[in-house]
C-alpha cells in the first residue's frame, strides 16, 4: 500500500503545481482587469493625456503601439517568409541549413535589452534615424524575425509534397509553384505567425526604451521620423516618472488592461487558428 500512498502524494503535488500556476497567472489578470476596467471609457481610449498625465486618455500611446507594430511587421514579414521559403523549398546543403537554423535559434534567445542597444547604435545613431518610429520598428522587426521565420517555416512544411509535385508535373517552374500553390496553401499558418508576432511586438518595452518611445508628446506622430508614445513604455513611465504617482497608477492600470487585452486577443486568435488549421488537408502528408 506504500505504492498507492506515494502515488497519492505525487499526484497531489503535481495537481497543486498546476493549481498554483493557474492561480498566479489568473490573479495577475484578475487584478489588472478589476482595477483597469474602472478607468476605461471612450474618452480614455480616444483622448490625449491631460493635466501632467493625471487625467485624460491614452490615445497617442495606442496609436504609437499600432505604428510600431505595423512597422515591424512590414519589415520582418518579407524577410521572414523569404528565409522560410529558402529553407523549405530550395533544400540548400545541410550545413547551410544548420548555420541558418543556428542563427535563428540564437537570435530568438538574445535578451530584448540587447536589441535595444543594437537599435540605438545602428538605427538611432549610425544611420541617423534618431529616436523615431522607424528606429523602433526596425529594432522590433529584428526581434520578431525568428518568430515569423519559424511560423512560416512550419506552415510551408505542412503543405503536402504532392501539391508541389502536381504543380511541377503540369509544367510550372519552381517559383510559379511556390507563388501559386505553396504560399496560398501555407497562408493560414503564416497568418498565425503574423498574429503571434503582433502580440509579441505590441508588448515589448526594452527594445523601444532608447529607440522610439517617449513619455509625453504634444500630438500624434507626424512621420516615421517622429518620436512616439507606446502602451508598454507608457505603463513603465507612469510607474517610474512623473509627479503624481497616485493618480498615475490608475491610468497605468487602464493602459495595462488595454495592452493585456490586445496581446491576449491576438495570441488566442492565433492559437485558435493554428489548432483549427492543423490537418486541414484530408489527403497527403
Amino acid at each position: 500500500m506504500k505504492k498507492e500512498f506515494s502515488q497519492k502524494i505525487g499526484f497531489s503535488f503535481i495537481s497543486l503545481c498546476m493549481f498554483l500556476t493557474v492561480l498566479f497567472l489568473f490573479s495577475i489578470i484578475f487584478f489588472i482587469v478589476v482595477n483597469g476596467i474602472r478607468v476605461i471609457s471612450w474618452e480614455f481610449l480616444t483622448q490625449m493625456p491631460k493635466e501632467a498625465m493625471t487625467a485624460g486618455g491614452i490615445a497617442p500611446a495606442i496609436v504609437g503601439t499600432f505604428y510600431l507594430t505595423l512597422g515591424s511587421i512590414i519589415f520582418s514579414l518579407p524577410l521572414g517568409i523569404a528565409c522560410a521559403i529558402y529553407l523549405c523549398e530550395y533544400s540548400p546543403k545541410s550545413y547551410v541549413v544548420n548555420i541558418i537554423r543556428f542563427s535563428i535559434n540564437n537570435l530568438a534567445g538574445v535578451p530584448s535589452v540587447v536589441f535595444g542597444l543594437f537599435g540605438l547604435t545602428i538605427f538611432v545613431k549610425y544611420l541617423g534615424f534618431g529616436v523615431s518610429i522607424l528606429s523602433g520598428s526596425l529594432t522590433l522587426a529584428i526581434l520578431v524575425l525568428p518568430l515569423i521565420i519559424s511560423a512560416s517555416n512550419e506552415a510551408i512544411l505542412a503543405v503536402p509534397q504532392s501539391l508541389r509535385e502536381a504543380s511541377l508535373s503540369l509544367g510550372a517552374t519552381k517559383w510559379q509553384t511556390i507563388k501559386k500553390v505553396v504560399l496560398p496553401t501555407a497562408l493560414p499558418g503564416i497568418l498565425t505567425g503574423i498574429i503571434l508576432s503582433i502580440g509579441r511586438t505590441a508588448g515589448e518595452t526594452a527594445p523601444i526604451l532608447f529607440t522610439a518611445a517617449v513619455f509625453y508628446l504634444k500630438g500624434y506622430p507626424k512621420s516615421i521620423f517622429s518620436e512616439v508614445m507606446a502602451l508598454p513604455y507608457h505603463i513603465y513611465a507612469l510607474m517610474t516618472e512623473g509627479l503624481y504617482p497616485d493618480k498615475q497608477v490608475k491610468i497605468a492600470f487602464g493602459c495595462a488592461l488595454i495592452l493585456l487585452f490586445l496581446v491576449l486577443l491576438f495570441s488566442s486568435v492565433a492559437i485558435y487558428l493554428r489548432n483549427k488549421h492543423k490537418n486541414i488537408y484530408g489527403y497527403g502528408n
Binding site: 509535385e165 504543380s167 508535373s169
Partner: peptide, 24 residues
C-alpha cells in the same frame, strides 16, 4: 502525371484545371 492519392490544389475546380494553362 497523375498521382497515387488525388492531390487537387485547395482552390476552385476551375482554377485547378486552368492552373497548367496559366503557368504555361
Amino acid at each position: 502525371m497523375v498521382f497515387q492519392k488525388p492531390n487537387p490544389f485547395p482552390k476552385s475546380i476551375f482554377e485547378n484545371v486552368s492552373y497548367g494553362l496559366k503557368v504555361n
